[in-house]
Structure formats: structure tokens, C-alpha cells
Design a protein around this nucleic acid. Structure first.
Lengths: 257, 257
DNA sequence: GAACGTCGTTCAGCAATACCGAACGCAAAC
DNA sequence: GTTTGCGTTCGGTATTGCTGAACGACGTTC
């Protein structure tokens, strides 16, 4: 609606996507507006700290103000706040990394990452964005969405990140149905080779809020000896968080009606 | 310069600062513009995913798009990229948490956090913003800034976060001078009670780029038995990263001229 | 249970504002 | 030394965004 703001955000998006440093001219043609316009937007964003200009080359890149706002977003996430201690508990109990995620559009957003205890070098995944259909967290959320939204997502794009990604809507629908019955979702190397996950939905007063799950090497996570333990642990923790968020007593399919 | 963009950012800032959810009316009076104006801005930001509206109450809060942009900022940080593996190495060697930070205005911004191995529950501090004068990282950076910038910061506000925070400009100037000689900075509960830190500056082609250091309980970090080891380790790692960033061979005060 | 107050939202008109084409200064490339 | 490309500045135009007033819905109060 407000043109300049839309354009400013598009500029930020281009800066985020296209390489570390971009020039005014390049940005102008990517966004499709005149060069002086982009310049004015950049100066404004720079004044607000959302963009910084490299003193040497004159090119622009994203600024630290964005990180502040991004962190502020995390703080407003009630799901995240309530999950922090439970995620740690789960990480210790399962001896695996734990992710908490919400759905945004057709992607799943990791809002918290509890590390695996005693793990080796682990990279932080907070802020990661994954197509819903390729991970346990996404499937756990979508399975409990209102039918029309679920249908819409199923009819949308189903990208393949690995050879195991499920790209057939009918097969996915069957999985979702089963997830609705069992209350948990599985993922076997559908988003990254070698990684598997087990996730369960988290509800708040108004319905599905997100999902929590364990993520780790397929050999460990889906091992027959511990898999059922993981399922139970994840589902229990998800239900606990749901209760703290004020969900109705029907832990699972209750809110889909 | 571009009014609407400035106002949009101010709206985001207010959303970040003031509580989890704010209404249009409240935002309008905080930002000081008419209600419909704020409404239009919010609708635009919502369309871009930087803001979401609570379906129930109609109030607004920050959106996940901000997290994406914030993460994109981290990815553009060359210092962060080069530090990742070194920070882990240092965390293991020192057996303490390691932070990497850059200077923004008069605050220090944590862009990477390597956890202490085998540590108990640790909270992630990436995105934290600390007054430069209250932490080892900040002092390590400012000590190697060009003289006029250093002077400006010394004349600026020197807030006190704890009773140990240094608020006297002359005392700080003396510390900075010593840091310039020794190549490392110390912090003894100046930003948080019980926490201490040891940091060293990191340089790139054009001068000071940021700092890296260990953070932990004062009893461990500043213990006489290991303190000197920490100093050596931090300084070595800082020099290694500087080399990767293309700094001149003068590891320490070289670039201040 | 009805009246009130408050909130988010819509509308239309005014003019302020942001956009653009052209031109400038500067640096690097040839 | 010339040329090419960059980021930047400038001024006029009309598009665009801003505002006051009014609408409908919700929650509260008496």
C-alpha cells in the first residue's frame, strides 16, 4: 500500500539475497526503479541503521539494526518463550538437538534451537527457513491446520531438497492424515541428507501455534531401539508447552474441529 | 530522507520496544503521526511479512521476515564467517564461551556465540547489544579506533550497568592506552555481575573490524592460574582471524597509525 | 440488556512528498 | 589522457501518501 516502504523492503530483500555488497545501480535495476530513488531509500535505511555503506567501495550491505529487530521478533514469540526450558529438557532427555518452529507462508521457521548435550561443533539454526513439506516440524504443523489452509498448502509447490523429499501431494496427504491420528510426524532425510527428525504439534488458545521436535543423524534418531522413546518424549513436551500456552485440553486434533 | 520509510522503521522500533503486541492507536501516538497513516504503514509491513496482526485482538507484532533479514545480515558479516571455526577452537581450548562482536555506534554487537563445551544450559547471546565501555570486547575495539573516533566515544555517554562499570572517561582512556600496548582487554563484572571477559581486537584490510573474546564466571576466567593462558589464546586466535581477513602484518596497533 | 467508549478500519480531498531525468564529480580501466 | 562506470546531487512534476472525519464491531459498564 505504501509504495516507498514496499520498495525499501524490496531493497533490503535484494541486499539479503544478492551477494554481500551491492551498488546503487545494480539495486536500481533489480528492484526496477530509478537510481536516485534507490539512493534516497538507501540513505534513509542507512540513517536508521538497517543498512551500512562500505566506506571504501561505496557499496551497500545490510546493517546491524536488522539483527536487533530480528531478535526483538524472537522475544515477542510467545511459543519460543514458553519453549526455552522445555526444549532444553527435551534435548537432555533425548540426547539430540531440539528445534522449535512456526509456520510462515509455506515455509517453516526455526525460532529456537537447543543444542545436543556434549555435542561437537554445532551450527546454530535459528532463523532457518525450510519448506514445510520437507521436514517433520512442517508436517506436524500442517497436519493440524484448518482443512482449507491444509488443502491450499498441499496444492502449492512441493519442492525437493533431497531425493527423499516428498513431492507427491497425495502421498503427503496420506502422511498428514496419519500424523493427525498419531500426533507426531517423522522425517527421513527429506530436507538434508543424513538428517532425520521427529516432531509434534504445539497448540495455543486459538489453534496450532507451531511444532517442536528432535533433529539428528538418521542412524541415531530413527534407530528402532530409541525411536519410540523419542516419539513419546517429543509428544509429551509438546503437550506441556501447549498447556502453558492455554490450549484446550484436547492435546492433539481437538482444534482442527 | 524518505519520510514514510523513516516512519515505518519507527513503527517497527516501537513494536520491538513496547510490549509484545501494540494497537494502531497506541502506535500512532507513540510515533506521533495520525492513526490512518500508521495503519497504512502496518498493512504494508504486514504484506511484506515484517509485521503480523493477531487475528483475535487485531493488534500487531513483529513478523518473521525480520528474522530472515537479521540472519541475512549475519551472513554478510565477513568477520563472523571467518570467525566461526576459530571461535569453536578457542571455546574448546579455553573451555569457556566465546563471543565475536562488532561496534555499532556506541554499542557492541554480538555476531557469534560459541558455547562452552559441556556447559550447562546456556542462553544464546547473538544479537545482544552492550555499551562499549562496559565489556572487554568493546574496549578492545575502541582502543584501536582512529584517535578522533576514540575521543568521540570517550566523550559520549558512559553508562553503568553494574557497580563495577567504568564511568570515568579519564580512567577509561588509561585502560585503552594499556590495551593498545598489551593487545588485549579485560573486564571484571562491568556489564553483568559475576561475569568477566578477556578480548582481543580483530583487523581487516581497512582497520579494526571487531573483537573476539572469552566470557565466563569471574572465578574461572580471571583465575590467576589460567588467566595468562586465556590471554595468549585469545590474542593468537584474534591474530589468525585478522590474517584471514587480509589485515596487514602488524597484528596489533599497526592500523591506528 | 442497552448505551457507551474504544478500537481497527475505510473514505475522500488536499498538498506535501517522493519519484524521476539530467547533470555532476570521482575513480578505475584501458 | 581519455573513457566508462560508479555514487551522488538537483529541481520540477504529479503521483503519492497524509490527515480529519466517519463507519462498524467489539468489549465494558451501569
Amino acid at each position: 500500500m505504501v509504495q516507498s516502504v514496499q520498495r525499501a523492503v524490496r531493497v533490503l530483500r535484494e541486499l539479503a539475497a544478492g551477494g554481500p555488497r551491492l551498488g546503487v545501480t545494480e539495486l536500481a535495476e533489480r528492484v526496477g526503479v530509478a537510481k536516485p530513488t534507490v539512493h534516497a531509500l538507501l540513505r534513509t535505511l542507512e540513517g536508521e541503521g538497517l543498512v551500512v555503506q562500505d566506506a571504501e567501495t561505496g557499496r551497500y550491505q545490510l546493517g546491524p539494526g536488522l539483527l536487533m529487530l530480528g531478535n526483538a521478533y524472537l522475544d515477542t514469540q510467545e511459543l519460543r518463550a514458553r519453549s526455552l526450558s522445555w526444549a532444553d529438557t527435551l534435548a537432555n532427555r533425548a540426547d539430540e538437538a531440539v528445534w522449535v518452529a512456526v509456520l510462515t507462508g509455506d515455509h517453516v521457521f526455526v525460532v529456537h534451537h537447543a543444542f545436543r548435550p556434549e555435542g561437537v561443533v554445532q551450527i546454530l539454526e535459528v532463523g532457518a527457513s525450510i519448506p514445510w513439506s520437507t521436514c517433520a516440524l512442517g508436517k506436524a504443523i500442517v497436519a493440524f491446520l484448518p482443512p482449507e489452509q491444509r488443502k491450499e498448502l498441499l496444492e502449492g509447490e512441493l519442492p525437493a531438497l533431497t531425493g527423499s523429499s516428498i513431492t507427491d501431494a497425495a502421498a503427503l496427504a496420506r502422511q498428514l492424515e496419519e500424523i493427525g491420528r498419531t500426533g507426531h510426524a517423522l522425517e527421513n532425510q527429506e530436507s538434508a541428507l543424513g538428517d532425520a527428525g521427529i516432531a509434534a504439534p504445539v497448540f495455543d488458545r486459538s489453534g496450532i501455534a507451531g511444532a517442536i521436535g528432535v533433529i539428528g543423524p538418521v542412524e541415531r534418531v530413527l534407530d528402532d531401539a530409541v525411536r519410540q522413546d523419542h516419539v513419546v518424549a517429543v509428544r509429551e513436551v509438546a503437550r506441556q508447552i501447549s498447556r502453558e500456552l492455554g490450549a484446550g485440553r484436547s492435546g492433539a486434533a481437538g482444534r482442527t474441529r
